[in-house]
Simulated assay, not measured.
Amino acid sequence: MHKPDLHLSAAEAARELGVSAKALRLYERRGLLAPRRSAAGWRIYGPAEMDRARKIVALRQLGMGLARITDVMAGNGDDLSTALAAHHADLAQQLDRMTETFQSVEAARRGVMSAAEADEGAAVSLQLPWPWGGERFDLPVIKPITYITGPLGSGKTRLARAIAEAIPNATFIGLERLTGDDKAVESQLKARIDAHLRQFAGQGVAPPPPALSALVRAIEACDATVLVIDMIEQGLDHETQQILRRYLRNRSFGGRPLFLLTCSSSILDCSDVSTGESIIYCPANHDVPIVVKPRKGARGYEAVATCLATPAVRARTEGVIARRPNVV
């Protein structure tokens, strides 16, 4: 609390001003402050010194240099208005230089990324099916996890099926997995399924919901090297989806690349996409799907965020936005 009737020590004055005692000594050396001394030689800051110090600190917080502050405080031809105008001009020049540097760095970064992608070539290249007009879609690289999302009717499921057909030894796992029969599972496969479900149980998913058991069964029953999975979150609550996401990111199913069709913010968290993950967005207007960089301001980032909903919202609209197993 400010107490103008008191004389403060250097430490008390620094605390009152929100600066360090070292800063006060610097202002003293530059002739900006002249605190009195006690009989024992300690610096003392009275009301007049504190008022002057507050003006200095306020100008420093605006980024003004000590030389200009010295002229203002000494009244050497630079009144406060003139000093602020000059300081504003300096900042504008610095901002222009920083903007130019930022643009140069951004251009160089994009050039390096484009060159790298050109050297790699497209990992997936296909002619887009209906509802597109036969345009080509290229995916530069297949990462451990690729999320596919888009609004209702955007064609994202057809794109997922087309990707599964374009990649050698890839398989599309649709929602028909939910109607599978556990009784026909052979013993070795059942042992692998049970091992996964025990892992989920250890993370708090016990007993496993039928949709999770069906998903694990469908994945383990498939010997494809790349899996494209329709609506990975179907039938799972919020906590189970989050645990499943962590489980998949640990590459728990043999390290096979996964393409995950999703509209759940618990499966695809835009703020937590790793370098081993990528996002494909299908626009509502059936423009060519794009690979979206996981950073705010990137093309398509905000559109992806608007496609995702929490499990609670998805449950309320399940009959509208979830594809039924018997729908092709």
Rank of each mutant, 00 (worst) to 15 (best):
R68G: 00
I69N: 01
I69D: 00
T70W: 02
M73F: 02
A74H: 12
A74L: 08
G75H: 01
N76C: 08
G77F: 13
D78W: 01
S81T: 10
A83T: 10
A83C: 09
L84K: 08
A85T: 12
A86Y: 03
A86W: 02
H87D: 10
H87I: 09
H87R: 07
H87M: 06
H88I: 05
H88G: 12
D90P: 04
L91H: 13
A92F: 13
Q94C: 10
D96R: 14
M98E: 12
M98Y: 14
T99M: 05
E100K: 14
T101V: 12
T101I: 13
T101L: 15
F102P: 11
F102S: 11
Q103W: 09
Q103L: 12
Q103D: 15
S104N: 13
S104L: 08
S104Q: 11
S104C: 13
S104H: 15
V105G: 06
E106P: 09
E106A: 15
E106R: 12
A107L: 12
A108S: 09
A108M: 10
R109N: 08
V112H: 04
V112K: 00
V112M: 03
V112R: 06
M113D: 01
S114G: 10
S114V: 01
A115Q: 04
A115Y: 09
A115P: 00
A116G: 08
E117S: 14
E117L: 07
A118Q: 07
E120T: 08
E120Y: 05
G121C: 06
G121Y: 10
G121L: 04
G121P: 01
A123Y: 10
V124C: 11
L126E: 06
L126Y: 07
Q127W: 02
Q127C: 11
Q127T: 15
L128F: 05
W130F: 07
P131I: 01
W132P: 05
W132H: 04
G133Q: 09
G133T: 00
E135A: 09
R136N: 05
F137S: 00
F137Q: 04
D138I: 02
L139F: 05
P140Q: 02
K143C: 11
Y147L: 00
Y147G: 00
Y147D: 02
G150L: 05
P151G: 07
